[in-house]
Nucleic acid binder design. Structure first.
Length: 432
DNA sequence: TCTGGGGTCCTAGGACCC
DNA sequence: TCTGGGGTCCTAGGACCC
């Protein structure tokens, strides 16, 4: 048995929790450029603000309906997410932190009433975090995910599902006929693993609901759509194919990319931006104890602008795998110089570190002759430590052009950004 | 004026080898 | 010189997730 706990309207609800004046009001959270909506409060959803909408298309609602827009506050989100995970960990034997606001729990063999257990975890999260969540239980991850959707929509969309499934929905409690009715009431596109593309293709074939999808022969689905969707069908049928991953493996690639607040022209600005992206990616890399063998750099114009469009990327292989900011920034810079074209107004750029492997497995032969490498590693560790303790940007690594900004390539600072000083350490903590 | 920032996995097809 | 078929590796692109 799997359980899925999923926070409701996480980003927007965090803001409402910390600013009581926002409670009950329509709130949206905007992406880093204040460009588009990345999260909505329940009230904003009710207003019909679509996910991903560019702000300029919905900003009129600020006047007419009191819609409040805030810039995303990632440190707050991160703290709240960690707290959420520690509470959700009490649900089952093992917990998989699936995303910032969702966690799968392994409930197999847990004695007692699991539905009651779901209500208890929900109450704890409300009490300690001031956040609402939905709890879904099912025999596979896909069914737990579906049950979770039901637990939320039974409340939000009265009439779609039986009202008693609101808050906590345990498919184990349902009869076959009840489960069929629930799955028939769920659109095929709402199934985990069915995106826009597959959803449209399935609809064309008359596969309308989750129930319809579950009736398809898996082998046929595999032939037409491949292994991934076949697994989805099997999981809907109750055959567990996707295991709980309690300990996430190391990432196979890490990257940092951004859109620029306004178009960026000229090599210097692009070098600065990409240098900082490489430096930030390097921090992520060292955090998981890896070294990278290749650095991928890309830069592009806005696809929303009229042509001509520009989009180029380049993979720069390293002589030996490294996690040294100076090496990675230098490689990223070499890539930028190679793809740069003057007269182009860049809208977005990024750096991905590829070919990752554990730092300790690096071949000793490569280190031979680089007598300073151990000292370099200590240097990077010290820089990371200082920046973590005193805030990002306290110490910068020079020598590879990664210096304090001269060009303003950054997203514009929003006047909407709330300046929170509250941290989770200011809030009472539940004893584990 | 203004359109997010991350990731994962699978598949098809080409190159190459025997 | 001509040739089949199978295996493996790599890469680009597509689809999905939040």
């Amino acid at each position: 048995m799997f359980g899925l706990v999923d926070l409701s309207n996480f980003y927007a609800s965090c803001e409402q929790t910390f600013r009581p004046s926002l409670r009950g009001k329509p709130v949206v959270v905007l992406g880093s450029n204040d460009g588009c909506v990345i999260a909505r409060s329940q009230e904003a959803k009710a207003l019909g603000v679509p996910m991903g909408a560019p702000w300029f298309k919905v900003s009129h609602l600020a006047q007419s309906a009191g819609l409040v827009a805030l810039s995303a506050n990632f440190p707050l989100i991160g703290d709240m997410s960690a707290r959420f995970m520690s509470l959700a960990a009490g649900f089952g034997h093992q917990l998989e932190a699936y995303s910032v606001d969702e966690a799968f729990a392994d409930l197999s063999g847990i004695p007692g009433d699991l539905t009651l257990r779901g209500f208890k975890i929900r109450a704890r999260i409300r009490q300690w975090l001031g956040l609402e969540c939905g709890v879904g239980l099912g025999g596979t991850k896909t069914l737990a995910k579906l049950a979770n959707l039901v637990s939320k929509d039974a409340e939000r969309k009265p009439g779609r599902y039986p009202a008693h499934l609101a808050g906590v929905c345990n498919f184990g409690d349902l009869s076959q006929a009840q489960l069929e009715a629930v799955m028939r009431a769920t659109a095929v596109g709402d199934v985990w693993g069915v995106g826009r593309r597959y959803g449209a293709q399935l609809l064309e074939l008359g596969v309308v609901s989750a129930w319809d999808l579950a009736q398809l022969p898996p082998s046929l689905v595999r032939k037409r759509w491949g292994l991934v969707l076949e697994r989805t069908v099997l999981e809907l049928q109750g055959v567990s194919c996707i295991d709980l991953e309690a300990v996430p493996g190391p990432k196979k690639q890490v990257g940092v990319s951004r859109s620029f607040g306004k178009g960026l022209e000229g090599l210097d600005g692009l070098l600065e931006a990409v240098g900082e992206f490489a430096a930030r990616a390097a921090v992520k890399l060292r955090k998981q104890g890896s070294v990278a063998g290749q650095v991928f750099v890309f830069a592009q114009t806005s696809p929303f602008r009229p042509p001509p469009h520009f989009s180029r990327g380049l993979c720069v292989p390293l002589a030996s795998a490294s996690a040294d900011t100076r090496v990675l920034v230098a490689a990223a810079h070499a890539g930028v110089r190679a793809i740069f074209q003057s007269g182009v107004e860049f809208n977005k750029a990024g750096v991905f570190l590829l070919d990752l492997c554990p730092a300790n497995r690096r071949q000793e032969a490569f280190d031979f002759g680089e007598m300073g490498s151990e000292i370099d590693e200590q240097l990077m560790a010290t820089v990371d430590h200082l920046n973590q303790r005193f805030g990002r940007g306290t110490v910068l690594v020079g020598g590879a052009g990664n210096t304090r900004r001269k060009t303003d390539w950054s997203p514009k600072q929003s006047r909407l950004t709330p300046q929170y000083t509250t941290r989770l350490s200011d809030i009472p903590v539940a004893k584990a």
